[in-house]
Design a protein around this nucleic acid. Structure first.
Lengths: 199, 199
DNA sequence: GAACATACGGAGCGTTGTTCCGTTTCGCAA
DNA sequence: TTGCGAAACGGAACAACGCTCCGTATGTTC
């Protein structure tokens, strides 16, 4: 009996070759469709683009959120890992926080519709939501706590709440050039600063 | 020939009695369904509740947004009219602005799902969007300009943009008790303040 | 190459928004 | 009162969508 040397990370039992290939094809097709039609593109479109049937999509990614997660996992992870690095490279934790938020905002606004789906109350997106939050909230909390410790920001703001607020600010409507998520988030983060001492 | 003493406000030509009655019934039913199921409730539900057919709804309110507008028109108008009053009754325009935003936020968060639909990119909601903005943005602009004139807030913020930001912050997800739109909007408005003079 | 598990495809179901048109009802006038 | 045309009604029907299900095809293994 051959010893199974695989680390526990990947899809545990050996998968058939065509299945593995289709997973890649799907991921690529989805990524492509997402940039042209947004993350809310019809599942059928993705299946067509990938040249597979509906069933194949749903077998690989039981819910649409799982597909989105898979497509963006790398970028989310990169964002999460940037947090501690920024904290180490900045004298001011507030600056680190601010830069990290910029990173997060860049990620959201460049993925057409991602922010919109994050706030979605549509059923089936809990997994997406949970993944993003699980991965990013702790990082945000760390940055926030550091900035609170140096009295640069208020201490009464919750990381989860802040992330939600930033996410909400990043949903943009159509092609309105008057609305700039980055500026609005900038305002929010500015509002976070500790007021020196008001009465 | 009888003089038409009607003000120019209501639906211009005389409508049939049953049509007028149904419009009222629909408005009431819609308002009721909106509070229980949110503004995204299926049109069929509203029709059923009102005891009318689908066709009747769409004849009175060509798009769903028109129905929502009709239901909330009074409250939007009240909010718009509160702006100048607040400006007159407050020494600080910033306080007036802040209180007006509170009013607006209260309106949004008490209407389950309204904020969500405001930011919607779904087709057919342009009318709703336009109505809200047409009615409220000028008021906001007035308050903002007054506050900018007294150097209480930055001068580089657009009223439309601010309204969008506030609206976005007000969409809440499910029943999450961790997210308080009012607090987030508070941060945003705090961020609006003119920094005394940073380098 | 035979046999079995695995994976595939797409027809089909349920749910929504919206349209369309045959039927009913209203309002007015003879 | 009765008759008639216009106005309004109701709900069947269509389209678009997410998701499921199962008969078929294809790897994989011996």
């Amino acid at each position: 009996m051959p010893v199974d040397g695989e680390p526990p990370v990947p899809s545990s039992p050996r998968k058939r070759a065509d299945a593995r290939r289709n997973e890649r094809v799907l991921l690529d097709a989805a990524a492509e469709v997402f940039v042209t039609s947004g993350v809310e593109a019809p599942v059928r479109d993705i299946a067509t683009k990938a040249g597979v049937g509906m069933g194949t999509i749903y077998r690989h990614f039981p819910t649409r959120a799982d597909l989105i997660i898979a497509v963006y996992r790398h970028q989310v992870d990169a964002c999460a890992e940037a947090g501690p690095a920024l904290l180490a490279n900045n004298e001011s934790p507030y600056d680190a926080l601010s830069q990290w938020i910029d990173l997060f905002v860049d990620f959201l606004v460049t993925k057409h519709g991602l922010a919109g789906v994050m706030r979605s109350d549509h059923a089936g997106f809990e997994a997406l939501h949970a993944y993003f939050l699980d991965r990013l909230v702790p990082v945000c909390a760390q940055l926030l706590k550091a900035a609170a410790r140096t009295d640069e920001v208020r201490a009464d703001v919750d990381a989860l709440e802040l992330m939600r607020g930033v996410g909400n600010l990043c949903v943009s409507i159509g092609d309105d050039s008057h609305y700039d998520p980055r500026r609005m988030v900038g305002l929010l983060i500015a509002g976070l600063r500790q007021q020196p001492q008001s009465s």
